[in-house]
């Protein structure tokens, strides 16, 4: 077995582009779910809107990339308003229903034949829409070490991505440790009590939805740019639930948990897959037990078992406080 290759692949994934994307998606969800108690099951929709907003204006309308970023943020704010205006006055469950449906609507519209000309239908959009970004790449060569490898473009995406994550995390840390953050946590505990103290709960829930959504759509920017393509089916409900997995792995309502959660998530997926693949191809695991084609499924099974163990033995996540979790919010 090629252990060096396993390490290289695993390490690359742990700090790689996917980790950044999932961390951003989960940071947004942390704002929604962790701090404000909003059940947003449509985070994938925000990522999709971010991704398409970067690709479509550049490819179909020749807009410069930085303008596309602004369009993307504007669109995700609009999407948040669209979701929030009718539902945030209602009970929490309604937001969950509406968001999960809205994210699917976004995906279905994106892959519909009607808008094929601009959105590329089910094939999505592939092209050099990230040229403006990659032109700024100061790295002429990629990173080549025995344990970690990135090509030049990936290295640029990873470095800018982590800087972006760091900035977002820092701002979020400031926000959640302010009276504003306290108000958000209070809304998570009991909206009516917060109303009785003279606070406009609706307004604050809307702010949370917008902020978390914009962070999610920034994850969509990274998703689109890193691949130079946007595929509608990447933005299905699975993406939302993986983001929740990442968040719960790390522990909700902790600023750093989405980052650590995303790292663990991708570490496990890639590590399990690489070990299995190496083991199967080198006949350490016999063919009759696991075939090469089954590795992809089995890694998710093992991942599932791992998550179950986590929920049983450490329900509060990596960073969570068990004492806090034990307090029944509705006691």
């Amino acid at each position: 077995m090629d252990f060096l290759f396993i390490i290289q692949q695993t390490l690359g994934a742990t700090i790689g582009v996917n980790t950044i994307i999932f961390a951003l998606a989960a940071i947004g969800l942390n704002m929604h779910f962790g701090y404000t108690g909003l059940l947003n099951f449509g985070q994938a929709g925000f990522l999709a809107i971010g991704a398409y907003s970067v690709a479509v204006p550049v490819i179909s309308f020749g807009v410069p990339l930085w303008v596309a970023f602004i369009i993307g943020i504007g669109n995700s704010i609009l999407f948040a308003l669209l979701l929030g205006v009718p539902t945030l006055r209602l009970r929490a469950d309604y937001l969950a229903i509406v968001t999960i449906a809205a994210a699917e609507i976004v995906r279905q519209i994106a892959r519909s034949a009607t808008f094929n000309e601009w959105l590329g239908g089910s094939d999505g959009i592939t092209g050099k829409f990230g040229k403006d970004f990659f032109d700024l790449n100061p790295f002429k060569e990629g990173l080549e070490t025995p344990i970690l490898r990135f090509n030049a473009n990936d290295l640029w995406v990873v470095i800018t991505g982590w800087i972006l994550v760091a900035i977002i995390i820092f701002v979020m840390w400031l926000m959640v440790n302010s009276p504003w953050g306290r108000l958000m946590r209070a809304i998570r505990e009991d909206e009516d009590a917060v109303r009785s103290l003279g606070k406009n709960v609706y307004l604050y829930k809307m702010q949370s939805l917008i902020i978390g959504g914009v962070i999610g759509s920034i994850g969509g920017f990274v998703y689109a740019l890193s691949r130079q393509s946007v595929q509608p089916d990447n933005y299905g409900t699975a993406l939302t639930f993986f983001a929740y997995t990442v968040l719960i792995l790390g522990g909700a309502a902790r600023v750093f948990s989405p980052i650590v959660g995303a790292m663990i998530f991708w570490f496990l997926i890639v590590f399990i897959e690489q070990v299995l693949r190496e083991a199967v191809t080198n006949n350490v695991i016999p063919d009759w037990l696991i075939g090469v084609n089954q590795v992809g499924q089995i890694r998710f099974m093992l991942m599932g078992i791992g998550l179950m163990c986590l929920m049983i033995f450490r329900p509060q996540g990596i960073f969570g406080d068990k004492k806090e979790l034990a307090l029944d919010a509705k006691a």
């Binding site: 926000m175 302010s178 504003w180 946590r185 917060v194 806090e324 307090l327």
Partner: peptide, 26 residues
Amino acid sequence: LYRLTVIENMALGARGQKGESVLKSV
């Protein structure tokens, strides 16, 4: 508000808090 401390519960009640504005909070 169960998962807020007692003092946080109290502070929440105060009126006209500048830090409750999303822009000023940072």
